[in-house]
Write a protein that binds this DNA or RNA. Sequence first.
DNA 1: TTCGTCATGTAATGGGTTACATGATTAC
DNA 2: GTAATCATGTAACCCATTACATGACGAA
Lengths: 207, 207
Amino acid sequence: MLELAVLGLLKERAMHGYELRKQLTQRLGFFWTVSFGSLYPTLRKLERRGWVEKAKPAPTTGRRKQVYRITAAGEREFMALLEEGVASGEEDKFPLRFVFFRYLRPELRIRALERRKAYLQERLEEGHRTLTKARHGRADTYTLSLMRHGVDVTQRDIEWLDELIAAERGWVGEQPPADGPAADAPPPRTAPTAEQAEPSDEITTTS
Amino acid sequence: MLELAVLGLLKERAMHGYELRKQLTQRLGFFWTVSFGSLYPTLRKLERRGWVEKAKPAPTTGRRKQVYRITAAGEREFMALLEEGVASGEEDKFPLRFVFFRYLRPELRIRALERRKAYLQERLEEGHRTLTKARHGRADTYTLSLMRHGVDVTQRDIEWLDELIAAERGWVGEQPPADGPAADAPPPRTAPTAEQAEPSDEITTTS
DNA sequence: TTCGTCATGTAATGGGTTACATGATTAC
DNA sequence: GTAATCATGTAACCCATTACATGACGAA
């Protein structure tokens, strides 16, 4: 989990731990937050394995900013982790993988999205089934409400995935699956390529 | 986490481990699933502490169903855990606590719901802020999409809480906060009381 | 008789957290 | 000069998971 995240961010540009966490919180804050207590050890574990390295030689005065950059081996490891995650479909970490989707080949991307959708649909059906059962056998209000809300949110998730899949396939203004009125603008017109290098201030200006 | 869940279910009626897990998955499946590897050890930990006890003396042949029931001490512990959770607001476990809301006094319930709402609103604003920043500084399509979706789902969550709070307060068909068209039926008309005892087949018939 | 589900358990491990400690740098 | 934020780190622990093993019971 953390390893993929760290490698993925460092692939964009060199960073130090504190900044890494900030970026992570910004991008995945809705699903995840890391603590320093796991971030720093991870960083050094990655260094020991040769997947990242210090960018600046040594801080001399005190223990100042440790800027890390990803290595060639690290890049390979990142892609391996990412694709392996897609293949084995660890459903909980989906959002994390998603943030790095631009590094995947388009077909893998679609496969991942569709797999995710299938998974959510299964849960949705299961949810519907138990909800039906729960209605006649009286379950308490709160449990019922939670289940309904769960169904609701899951449906939302599926719609989101539908938009993503459609966009990925290229039909931009074409007819959606013939269900309800589709939501707002489908995002990517052309498949985005991994623009790398250039220490730009992605999302927020830091340092 | 697990302790609260197990105690809460056993408070309803006596059950064995396997069944416990089934119930848990049905009610909280959207947010959570437990593995047996943690369930059984927990069960025996609870037994050692005197919070649950075996209902049937001993299975004699082989190691057959171990039916557990909650003890008086267990009931006290359950309420303590639940109320402590509400007080300290461990936000991740909210759904779990929610399933047992009927055991809380109405005022505590409202407080919990409002606290949760405030928390989500904070995250929502934070999300909006970073989204705005992210739009001009170019973040990739996928990250942006994820953030938008996060905002979306969080808004949904807040609406849900609004309905719950309104229902809790008793205004059933009265005007909603004057925002948009409210969603479908607000659930509880009267505050549900903890109907206890009676080993009914809550949600699904088992055994 | 074999397959699926019911049912309970253990050992090794994992992936993170909290709490704590330290100190530099910036802004007021 | 002091408070807030930046920045790094460690130790103890926690809560759960995976993988594995065992075996009963019912249905085909």
